[in-house]
Structure formats: C-alpha cells, structure tokens
Amino acid sequence: MKPNIAIIGAGLAGLTLARELADHANITLFEKARGLGGRMATRRRDRHRWDHGAQFFTARSRAFKTLLRPFIDNGTVVEWRPNITTLSPRQPPYKRPWFEPHYVATPGMNGLLKAMSPGLNIALQTRVDTLKQEAGKWRLFDDQRAELGEFDWVISSAPLPQTEVLLPLAADTYAGFGMRPCYALMLTVNDGDLPAWDAAQVNDSPLRWIAFNHRLPGRDRNFGAVVAHSTADWADAHLEDHQEQVKHTLTEQFCTLTGVSPNAVQDAQLHRWRYAQANAVENDPEGYVLDAERKLAACGDWCLGGRVEAAFTSAHRLAAQLIRQGL
C-alpha cells in the first residue's frame, strides 16, 4: 500500500516534490493562499498584472533544464531578453549585460506552477496549523482546528520561519539557514510615461530592482505595470512602519531614480514579503531537512541559498532520497 504524504506549500518546491513522488505515494498538497505560486506569484487588478515575487529565473542544472524543456516547447516558459540598465542616485545609468539565458513564465510567473499542477491533489486556502502524532501517523489540523487527514509523512515546502513553527524538529536542525524580508511596490503607469529600458538593477537606494512587467513576453503592453523591490536591509529597518508611509517613500524613490513624474503614477500597491530572500548557505548542504525516523522533512530555496532553481533542486534531491530509502 502506498504511503500517504502531506506536502505543505504549493510553490515550485512543493509541486516538484509532489510530481516526483506521485508514482510512489498518495500526495495531498496544502496551500494557504487562494492560488499557486508562493513567491512566484502574480497579482491582477482589472487587466493589469504584476509578478511581485520572483522576477525571472535561470537554469543551470541538467535536472532543471529537463523539467523546463516541455514548458519552453509549448510557450509556458520563454527566454527574456530585456534592455537592462543599472541605476544609482550617485552616478549616471549604464547598460547591464547578462551572460546566460534568463526565463519568465507566461502569462504570469505563476503560469509555470499552473502548468505543473494538473493531476495533483491540491487543497487551496487551507492553512496547516498543527501536527499531532498518534500510533505512528501524523494528524493535521487547520487554523480552525478542523482535522485535515492522517498521513505517514509530513513535508513542508513553506518558508523557513513557518517550517520551524510547523515541524517539531530539534532546534539545531535549522542552524545555518535564514530568510530576510522585502517590499514589493506595484505601480500602474502608462507605457509612454516610462523610460526606454525594461528593467534595472539599483544601487545605493532603498530599492534594488525595477521592472516594467507589461514588457515581459506574453504580457499586454497596453496596461503598464511596474514592480519595484526594496533591499532586504531597508525592509528589515522598516518592516513594521506604517505601510502607507512605506509605499509613499518607495514611490518617491522610484520617481527620483527613473525620472517618471509622480503625476504619471495612476495607482500604487504594496506587498510586504516577510520571508523573501534566503541567506547564502555555507559549504555544500544536502539541500533539504530530513528526519527519517519521525517521517518529517522540509525543502525549499532556503535550503540552498535562494533562487528559483534552488527551490526545484531542493525538492528534487529530497524526492530522490525518499525514493532511495523506500519512503
């Protein structure tokens, strides 16, 4: 009989793990949000669309390239060749070259996750709050104390701080891992009011990245959508500030850096990512957390120092280890 496995989180790591274990176990994914994506999320308002989490990804490993190949072939994933610049309040802008392919999903970054999800058992808007072990099985409960089922394994692909709270593992299990916050500013600006470049790395500013999302492949240029990300240091220092003031400050920074008139900004939204960027990981970690005796595990980009591909690689390595040990 196949074991029952609960996977918490339906971002890239959770979906990768579910797909790779599907022939070996009965899988249920629990996702607290209304849709798939995690930090590969896309927000919509009317016909505007903002990829307010991950902006792009690279593919360096053979395994990740293998996963992407059919999605590249069918147009779900497209290489992005932007006109990219570097901005700083201290020096003139200069062109910034890229030396490897960069990819985006269409029509939004969560398009890849949606394409990976058919056939999987996914419970959306379901927040796993508590685990209880009884007679060798794990019983899961949501934040309303309703029981979600009984499972042989529980695996978290949630961000590190949430995983630490959920999984009853030794405190030193998570030593060496960490995550930091980021603000995502989402602006509505007509394309004609924006500079000619498509994206910018930003130095010496509360902002670190600006992208004109509507110019990405598969988007509609008629509905100008700007995403600007803060630095982790600035977000750390202002995480509990009044959010309207944060939005105002970052919008001012955007206008100053780009030369866009404040009057051209038709609308501004703010998203506070408390767990946005994974800290660099020292040495060469396995890429996952595993307690085989208690049948608990965790994976995610935070296990390998960030990047979209790190989320895939962490889940891919964990799946291989679970299959090797016969679950």
Rank of each mutant, 00 (worst) to 15 (best):
K2E: 13
R215P: 04
A292P: 01
R44G: 12
E134C: 11
A54V: 12
D198S: 06
S61N: 07
P70A: 07
M186A: 09
E309G: 11
L12N: 08
N263P: 00
K247F: 06
E252F: 09
T188M: 13
W138F: 03
R219M: 11
T85I: 14
D198I: 05
G35K: 14
V128C: 04
A320N: 13
D142G: 10
E20F: 02
E147V: 09
L160N: 02
L148A: 05
N110T: 09
M186G: 05
K132I: 12
R272M: 14
K247D: 10
G176H: 06
P101S: 12
T66W: 07
W138I: 02
G9S: 06
V154F: 01
V246T: 08
T66A: 15
Q125L: 11
V189F: 05
T231D: 02
L67C: 06
H229L: 13
D241K: 08
L17P: 00
E240D: 15
R60F: 11
L17R: 01
D73I: 01
D220R: 02
R180G: 09
L17F: 00
F71R: 04
Q269C: 10
A237N: 14
Y288L: 07
S157R: 07
T163R: 02
E293V: 04
D241L: 07
I122G: 00
N83V: 12
R272Y: 07
